[in-house]
Design a binder for these strands. Structure first.
Lengths: 167, 167
DNA sequence: CTGTTTGTTCGGCTCAATCCGAACAAACCA
DNA sequence: TGGTTTGTTCGGATTGAGCCGAACAAACAG
């Protein structure tokens, strides 16, 4: 087993992360930068990330800011040692997914639910349109609860909950 | 309660659907066309959708094809009555979400998992890189199972499973 | 068979996102 | 202090997605 093989394998996983990034509405560069940080033994600075990824300094600067804001990476402002800003990947993928649930999906579900409820109040009870909206509301109420609970469990707990549920 | 109010309320819900469409990686036009079909009493043809949405015929043609492929709307090829192709919205939102789970998320999780496992085989057991990958694999294995089970339950069942789970 | 209605495909326009390089700002070093 | 390294911000080039109108194809009506 050569270092080459190992490097190729790592590259494949990073490419997979690039793809996943797109699914989450991020750019491919964000996926790569996260991936490089994920496999880095310690923390990396912006010049090091430029070296590793081949992206321009400005790109790395912008992307790291975005990733930090979302919580995919952490800014280790080790102002003690040097001026360099150090970045570290959040390696607990489940934490990231929980954040996505809380920040995006839950928000999306809640705002939609608000709109639906408001619409339901405005539409008279005898209107034809009432029925589909009512149906929509009920599904979203279930969704709200599901997302809420799912974001509180760990991956293993969630799996357990679904596996042990019967009828 | 005037018809205007009712129309406004419906418009708000459709706008909300436009926004949701973006979250699912679809265009706003897809959200609107789905919304119009959702509130339509029966089925609508392409010329009718052009009239209702204001989009060009070509846009409606392309978007309806996409939405049909994904399963958000159904092609009622009522070749019996006339030549017109009729479209109907899939109003069971949970069915749609299950499809998204099955077709996209599950696929995404599985391909990632395959890549991770292949990488794990290539990296020797004593390598430093082994540990983070192993962690990643375990989370994704949980994810695979979660997505699989979640896509089999109804919204109410899923909610019930999470609510009744203890420890 | 001719004209009309419906639906798809094609090329082009517009706009937004991504990324780059250059300019700038700030901190460190000698 | 002057020079170097690091980080951010800005304007611009490139690319892709979304949408349109026109051309084309196909089915129906008279």
């Amino acid at each position: 087993m050569s270092d080459d093989d190992s490097a190729v394998a790592r590259e494949r996983v990073i490419e997979s992360m690039e793809q996943s990034a797109e699914v989450y509405g991020l750019s491919r560069s964000a996926g790569r930068i996260y991936g490089v940080l994920y496999f880095a033994s310690g923390t990396l600075s912006i010049p090091e990330l430029v070296e590793e990824t081949g992206y321009a300094k400005s790109t790395v600067s912008n992307v790291t800011r975005t990733l930090s804001r979302i919580g995919l990476i952490h800014r280790r402002s080790s102002t003690g040692g040097g001026r360099r800003v150090q970045f570290e990947a959040e390696r607990e993928v489940w934490f990231i997914l929980q954040d996505v649930f809380q920040q995006y999906i839950q928000r999306e579900v809640q705002t939609t639910l608000r709109t639906i409820r408001r619409a339901e109040e405005q539409v008279p009870a005898d209107a034809r349109e009432q029925e589909p909206i009512q149906n929509l509301r009920e599904t979203y109420e279930d969704l709200e609860e599901i997302v809420q609970l799912a974001s509180e469990y760990s991956a293993a707990e969630l799996r357990e909950a679904l596996e042990t549920y019967e009828q």
